[in-house]
Measured scan of single mutants.
Amino acid sequence: GTEDLKEEAKKALKKGDKERAKRALKKAGLSEDQIKKFIKEVL
């Protein structure tokens, strides 16, 4: 589900894998702006 994808994105970001995080967030249905915001909040 969406929460799982967001968790996956957080883990990817902590490993420095932004591309993987972006893919997971796109799958979760987030827009580009939401993805940028999510990444900023996590990092």
Results as ranks from 00 to 15, higher is better:
K15H: 13
K6H: 10
K11D: 13
D17E: 08
G16C: 03
D17L: 07
Q34V: 04
E32I: 08
I35G: 00
K15F: 11
A12Y: 14
A21H: 00
L30N: 01
E8S: 06
K37P: 01
E7N: 10
D4M: 12
K22H: 13
K10Q: 06
L43E: 10
K36E: 15
K6S: 04
A24E: 07
K36I: 14
I35D: 00
K14N: 09
E3G: 08
V42I: 11
K11S: 11
S31Y: 02
K6P: 03
L25A: 01
K37E: 15
A12P: 02
I35V: 06
D17W: 07
D33Y: 09
D33P: 06
K18A: 12
L43K: 05
K11Q: 14
E32R: 07
V42T: 08
R23W: 10
A21G: 03
A21K: 00
R20Y: 11
E19T: 07
A28K: 02
F38K: 01
A28P: 00
K10W: 09
A9M: 03
E32P: 11
G29T: 01
A24V: 13
T2L: 14
L25S: 00
R23N: 12
K27N: 09
L30C: 05
S31H: 04
E7L: 09
L25Y: 00
I39C: 04
Q34G: 05
E7K: 08
K6M: 15
G1F: 13
K15V: 14
L43R: 05
D17Q: 09
E32T: 07
K10G: 03
L13G: 01
A24Y: 15
A21C: 05
F38A: 02
G16R: 04
E8K: 06
G1C: 09
G1P: 11
T2V: 14
L5M: 07
A28S: 05
L13N: 01
R23D: 14
K14S: 10
A9S: 02
K36Q: 14
I35Q: 03
I35F: 02
A24T: 08
L5S: 04
A24N: 06
K26D: 05
E3I: 11
E32C: 08
L25T: 00
D33E: 13
D4P: 07
K40P: 01
A24L: 15
K36D: 15
G16Q: 04
E32Q: 07
L30M: 12
A28M: 10
K10E: 07
K11Y: 08
K40R: 11
K14T: 08
K11G: 06
A12W: 15
K18M: 15
D17Y: 06
G29L: 03
A28C: 05
A21V: 04
D4V: 11
L13W: 08
K6N: 04
K18I: 15
L43T: 08
G16W: 04
K40M: 14
E19Q: 08
K18E: 14
D17N: 07
E19D: 10
S31R: 05
T2P: 12
D33R: 09
G1H: 13
F38E: 01
K26T: 10
E7S: 08
I39F: 11
A24P: 00
D4A: 14
D4F: 13
E41L: 08
A21E: 00
A24W: 10
D4T: 10
A28W: 04
R20E: 13
E32V: 08
K10V: 13
S31M: 05
L5C: 07
K15G: 11
T2R: 10
E41H: 08
E19I: 07
E41R: 07
K11R: 13
F38G: 00
K14A: 13
K37R: 10
E19W: 07
A12N: 04
L13V: 05
G29N: 04
Q34N: 05
D17M: 06
L43D: 06
R23K: 12
T2D: 11
T2C: 04
D4S: 11
E8L: 11
D17R: 04
A28E: 03
K10L: 13
D33N: 09
K40V: 10
R23M: 11
D4Y: 13
K6F: 15
K26Y: 09
E19H: 06
F38V: 03
E7F: 06
G16K: 03
S31I: 03
K14Q: 13
E3C: 05
K40I: 12
I39M: 10
I39N: 01
A28V: 04
E8M: 10
D4W: 15
K27A: 13
Q34A: 10
E19C: 06
A12H: 11
D4Q: 12
K22N: 07
F38N: 01
D33A: 11
E19A: 10
E19G: 07
K26A: 11
E41D: 12
K22L: 15
R20W: 13
L43Y: 09
S31F: 03
K27I: 08
R20G: 15
L30R: 00
F38L: 04
S31K: 05
K37H: 11
R23F: 07
A12M: 10
G16S: 03
A12D: 05
E41S: 09
A21L: 04
A24I: 15
A21Q: 01
V42G: 05
K40H: 14
V42C: 05
L43F: 08
V42W: 14
K22M: 15
K10I: 15
E19L: 08
L43M: 11
G1Q: 12
F38R: 00
R23A: 15
E32M: 08
L5E: 04
S31T: 13
K10M: 12
K6I: 15
L43C: 07
L13H: 02
K6W: 15
K22W: 14
G29Y: 02
R20F: 11
D17F: 07
G29C: 03
D17A: 04
E3Y: 07
K26F: 07
E7V: 07
K14E: 13
I35S: 02
F38T: 01
V42Q: 10
I39P: 01
E41Q: 10
E7R: 08
K22R: 14
L13A: 03
K36C: 06
Q34I: 03
D17T: 01
K11M: 12
G29P: 00
G16D: 04
R20M: 12
A24Q: 07
E19K: 08
A9N: 01
K36P: 02
K26P: 00
V42Y: 15
E8T: 07
E3K: 09
L5D: 04
G1N: 14
K10D: 02
G29V: 00
E8G: 03
I35R: 02
K10Y: 12
T2W: 14
Q34F: 05
S31A: 05
I39G: 00
L5V: 05
G29S: 02
R23P: 00
R20I: 07
E8W: 10
E8H: 05
K18Y: 15
K6V: 14
I39A: 02
K40N: 14
K10N: 05
K22G: 05
L30T: 00
K27M: 12
K22V: 15
A21N: 00
E41N: 09
T2E: 12
G29E: 02
A12K: 02
E7Y: 06
E7C: 06
G16V: 02
K36A: 14
K18C: 11
S31Q: 05
E19F: 06
Q34D: 13
S31V: 03
D4G: 10
G29H: 03
G1I: 13
Q34E: 15
A9F: 04
Q34P: 00
K18F: 15
A12S: 06
F38P: 00
E8C: 06
K10R: 15
K36V: 13
K14I: 14
K22Y: 15
V42R: 03
L5Y: 12
K27P: 00
L25K: 00
A21S: 02
L30E: 01
L25H: 00
L13S: 01
K6L: 15
F38D: 00
A12R: 03
E41M: 10
F38I: 04
K6Y: 15
K36G: 08
K40T: 13
K36L: 14
E7G: 06
K36F: 10
Q34M: 08
L25M: 02
K22S: 07
K6G: 04
L25N: 00
D33W: 08
L30S: 00
K14M: 14
K11W: 10
E32K: 08
L25V: 00
A9K: 01
K27W: 05
E19M: 08
S31D: 11
G1S: 14
K37D: 14
E7A: 10
A24S: 06
K22A: 11
L30P: 00
K18R: 13
K22D: 06
K37Q: 15
K40S: 14
E41W: 08
K40Q: 14
L5R: 03
A24R: 03
K26V: 11
A9P: 01
E41K: 09
K36S: 12
K18L: 15
G16F: 04
A9W: 03
E3F: 08
K14L: 15
E3W: 07
G16A: 03
L13M: 05
R23E: 15
I35W: 02
E41F: 07
K26H: 09
K27S: 09
K26M: 12
A21Y: 02
S31E: 05
D4E: 12
G16L: 04
